[in-house]
Design a protein around this nucleic acid. Structure first.
Lengths: 245, 245
DNA sequence: GAGTGGTCTAGACCACGCA
DNA sequence: GCGTGGTCTAGACCACTCT
């Protein structure tokens, strides 16, 4: 039984379970099931789609592997909800040198609306007259400044973002709850640079002091770029961790 | 049918496919099949182990997901062989700002044998009288120095490493070919620091210039620590990339 | 054509969560 | 006790590779 009919020998062959996967993903990303809601059971989906339970299972397993859904034995399959614990450690890989996970808190924050710059248009896929919100804030760990970050998002996509003040510590939970946008992946470029005047002041170091620059593009479920983030970390007492598998 | 007999209700339950997975992994790590060799077919393994082909498949799929084996339709399942292309980009995530992958080449290299320092003993799990090889080398991209790295390995485990000169650019291929040790994962700590005199000289920058410090512990198939590596990168024209999935 | 992994099915039974 | 996902099986057929 196939969903998109295809004769049984052409080259552009797509496995059934992947068609099911894509179908479920599109339903999730258009909000047919909201975060934290349960999907129908494997058995129900299989019956509804006219495929076997094993095929539905394979589709759901692949979504679970990408953390787009969570499966809980005995309960059901749920659309992933961004929570403090889960998201924080998935997208913010900062650790104190002692080994403890670090969660620097925002203390100062400004938000402005302005036309998008060229590179911002390019990375976010915006039109040339588009506007963006630019959030600049400093984060503290143990009462010391450790991070200065600037966040750029489309003003059209995240409407009235500037009316929500103060903005929460973890924006990704907020994007999901307020705008139905789930950040699913991100890619980062890391460099060591000397602090400029602005960064030096924010982090209480001298101009030229070595700081870690992390430039991030964050994507939603459909790999649409949502957010640009430029962070300067003071890595005296903490570090960025990476696991290569 | 179970491999390790277990009554069907106790808490410490291990799925059959995981027992098969562990068995195959232990055979691979002890060298029963060498890198690039084919494992027996699913059908043959299933018959030999007295389980169904679907169970063997699930075990092999999980090994393939961790890149410990590679599956090729129509050919067979092969123990992963570290090659220039595959390993290089898996463990060295360096990219030119232009977007091109960077493969800095070693130009200078020294190797010495000496007693292990305290932290080296700790991270590599060595005894207190153990000795290590320490390799220090500089790497160049486009005729400019971009990296100074120091590599620490157990002298007992990688015997006579110092007789192989010059050492190859990519050590992980060499560990596998020469010692049967496959690096399967690694974890890294990243900081921005000021160059000390030694690093500054090697990278042709001033003392105190910002450089990216990457400290790595690399593990074999059984997650035994094999190598300690401390790298200082000059990130003027290139950067470290991370994908958060 | 023979042999390999890849897909798909149907059904049995187990482990878990909850009422 | 029921419904959920998790494991395991047996077998059919498809896609790819090599001879």
């Amino acid at each position: 039984m196939t969903i998109t009919e295809q004769s049984p020998d052409r080259p552009g062959f797509t496995p059934l379970y992947q068609q099911v996967r894509d179908l479920l993903l599109s339903r999730i990303s258009t909000g047919a099931w909201r975060p934290a809601e349960a999907l129908p059971s494997e058995h129900a989906l299989a019956a509804a789609l006219g495929v076997s339970q094993g095929t539905v299972r394979k589709a759901l397993d692949s979504l679970a592997a990408e953390k787009l859904v969570e499966r809980r034995q005995g309960k059901g399959t749920f659309v992933t909800l961004h929570t403090q614990e889960s998201t924080q450690f998935r997208f913010f890989k900062l650790t104190f040198d002692s080994g403890e996970r670090a969660l620097p808190l925002c203390k100062e924050s400004t938000i402005t609306r302005r036309p998008a710059k060229d590179d911002e248009q390019k990375f976010l896929g915006l039109l040339s007259l588009a506007e963006v919100f630019a959030i600049t804030r400093n984060r503290f760990a143990e009462d010391r400044p450790v991070l200065r970050e600037t966040i750029i998002v489309s003003a059209e996509l995240l409407q009235k973002l500037d009316t929500h003040q103060p903005l929460p510590n973890t924006l990704y939970m907020f994007y999901q709850a307020e705008y139905g946008i789930s950040i699913a992946s991100a890619s980062e470029r890391i460099k060591a640079v000397g602090a400029d005047k602005d960064v030096a002041h924010a982090l209480s170091v001298e101009v030229g002091a070595p700081v870690l620059l992390v430039e991030r593009v964050a994507f939603d479920l459909t790999r649409r770029p949502i957010e640009l983030r430029k962070s300067f970390y003071l890595t005296d007492s903490l570090h960025y961790t990476v696991n290569l598998g």
